[in-house]
Design a protein around this nucleic acid. Structure first.
Lengths: 346, 346
DNA sequence: GTGATCATCGTAAACGTTTACGTTAATCCG
DNA sequence: CGGATTAACGTAAACGTTTACGATGATCAC
């Protein structure tokens, strides 16, 4: 049905080798034949078969990306960044929704191996040994997005979570807050869990604020529902809290919702800072102050890095991208007077 | 580096044809040799090369999906649905972010043709003639997701937008509202524009409510910012409005935000119903009542349909999926008394 | 004029599969 | 027992490219 290189060769009265050379602009033909071939290509509407090319070149110009949830606001921004890098470099990307499932992830790794992708992106999740072994057997480069591996020197692109959390809390302190609580997500999460908790605690200590374990409250995940459920919990365990650091925007927005339900006014009665700067942050009521991760950029830088490695231009080093405090309307300046007043209330 | 079928054949002391037969479980070998081959496969960690397979079978078991914005809550849910269908049927999907750009879309169509995908999904956007011509030349099946083509009989999966809008407005009316406005997005949008406007108007007429063009206000798109900007506009043009139908959840949440800013209380002073039922709808303040499109399901049904067509099991008919009114907290019952009272205010 | 160089091409092998066809030996039926 | 059938394989072509190598003729230097 579709024209092949052979048809073009016949139409232009040359050999397929010549056509191939012209397609890949290598030397070895006259201008006249080049024009003749180009014309034949146009009239036949010929487009080279990437499958055949892939077979002989051992390059498919496609990447595989594994994400826990294709449709989450978080992952989808990473996806978009990766896609953008791939597009500008002439690659395609196969998306794999792992659903946090081990068997599904392994399934996909097998498929991606069979399809001979040139490289792999792994996102958000912890890179289990079983995954890593399989990827090593594939023999293709890998870069980690918004996550990091402990054991090995796998290139990654992410934000410094500990530092970002530190800055979020420092921002709260700079605004005059001294009684600060934290809504953490899953403590076990190697990226969004402990590092952000560490940053929280460190910021408190560095500013001579007391810290007690009950100032942190944990959820099974980082979701809206968790935030909604966790805020009252945190508040009841700690009297006089004036500000809260939430380890994700979803947690923060959930907390916002709980605050609203219980008549607490944000930011007048309670300040809240989130983490991620997802689309939802600017649409919440009131708009959420948060620490911004450049997710799109993480995706695109990671994609570029992977392609560099594939093409042998690789600097195979992890990269930390800058975070940023996005000031909106959920954190208020806290004067000494106000603080005193609140103390009186108790 | 990776073992080939030849290596397996040598290791098991059979011909490659026999290995191939075993892999594709066709008849033509004894149980003994099968076991021998399977063992060789295991020890060599052999996995067939899908590229070579694709070359000879002329099937790549991969789909291409074109979406205007990979990271939008809307598209990403469709993506997820498609991915799910593909996964269960043993296909992969290449995602293509068109960014509403004609050249980028054409670029992708060329790439997908070169890579010989087995089928195409086209999403949200209008299928321009140039796109369609190109796709016809590719000679692969196409299904439309959450959109529809006028001219031709291309299979699609979507909701009945006109009907859904009708039901949204009927719901408002059933709640006692008689002065209803609409925030539309882009009027030119063939799916989210006119059909929903038609539904709105029809519902008004069918319930003997007057309609005036100024009851509808239009934005360049369907975004949060548009909603925020458009609500005051709508309100100033129409006194005494008690309920609003927004053509998207983003518009609705934007309107929510504008209402909050201007001291209007939702749903006490103003009821709002959205459209889409995105993740944001349940996280807004207050949680948004909206008409739900089953986006994930649209994606998965569409994916299944496409694969059915590819594999020749095809019923090539468009499908309308059911929508649903999702009741949350932005629409209030409006008693006659209240209505009167509001009239007095004016 | 002659050998060397070079531009311009063609031939054929290779990539890793699938599959039509042929071959061998065993089995079966009468 | 002899011919036909069949199970169990192997051989080789084909898919659509790329590329090493060779071939041809023209050009060049001397």
């Amino acid at each position: 049905m579709n024209a092949t290189i052979k048809d073009v060769a016949r139409a232009a009265n040359v050999s397929i080798a010549t056509v191939s050379r012209i397609l890949n602009n290598q030397p070895g033909y006259s201008l006249k034949t080049k024009q003749r071939v180009l014309k034949a290509i146009k009239t036949l509407n010929y487009q080279p078969n990437a499958v055949a090319r892939g077979l002989i070149n051992k390059k498919t110009r496609t990447l595989g990306i594994l994400v826990p949830n294709v449709s989450s606001m978080f992952s989808s921004l990473l996806l978009k960044g990766v896609e953008d890098a791939a597009y500008t470099r002439g690659y395609s990307v196969i998306m794999c929704h792992t659903a946090n499932s081990g068997v599904r992830t392994m399934d996909y790794l097998h498929v991606l191996k069979e399809k001979r992708v040139d490289g792999l992106l792994f996102t958000s999740e912890v890179l289990k040994d079983a995954y890593y072994d399989e990827i090593r057997r594939m023999g293709v480069p890998l870069v980690l997005l918004a996550t990091q591996s402990l054991n090995d020197s796998i290139p990654y692109v992410k934000v410094d979570d500990r530092m970002a959390a530190y800055h979020a809390v420092r921002y709260l302190i700079a605004k005059g807050h001294t009684k600060i609580g934290m809504i953490s997500g899953n403590k076990e999460d190697r990226i969004a869990g402990q590092p952000r908790i560490d940053g929280f605690i460190q910021a408190l200590k560095d500013h001579n604020l007391s810290f007690n374990q009950k100032q942190i409250v944990y959820g099974p995940s980082f979701s809206f529902d968790d935030g909604k459920r966790l805020l009252p919990d945190l508040l009841s365990k700690n009297r006089g809290l004036t500000a809260i650091f939430a380890a994700s925007d979803f947690l923060a927005v959930g907390a916002l919702s709980a605050a609203y339900s219980s008549g607490l006014r944000v930011p007048d009665d309670l300040s809240i800072i989130g983490y991620d700067n997802l689309e939802i942050a600017k649409m919440s009521l009131p708009p959420l102050t948060t620490v911004g991760q450049p997710l799109f950029q993480i995706g695109s830088v990671g994609g570029m890095m992977l392609i560099d490695i594939i093409e042998g231009k690789g600097n195979v080093e992890g990269r930390i991208l800058p975070h940023q405090i996005i000031e909106r309307q959920t954190v208020s300046e806290r004067s000494k007077a106000l603080t005193e007043k609140n103390y009186d209330k108790q």
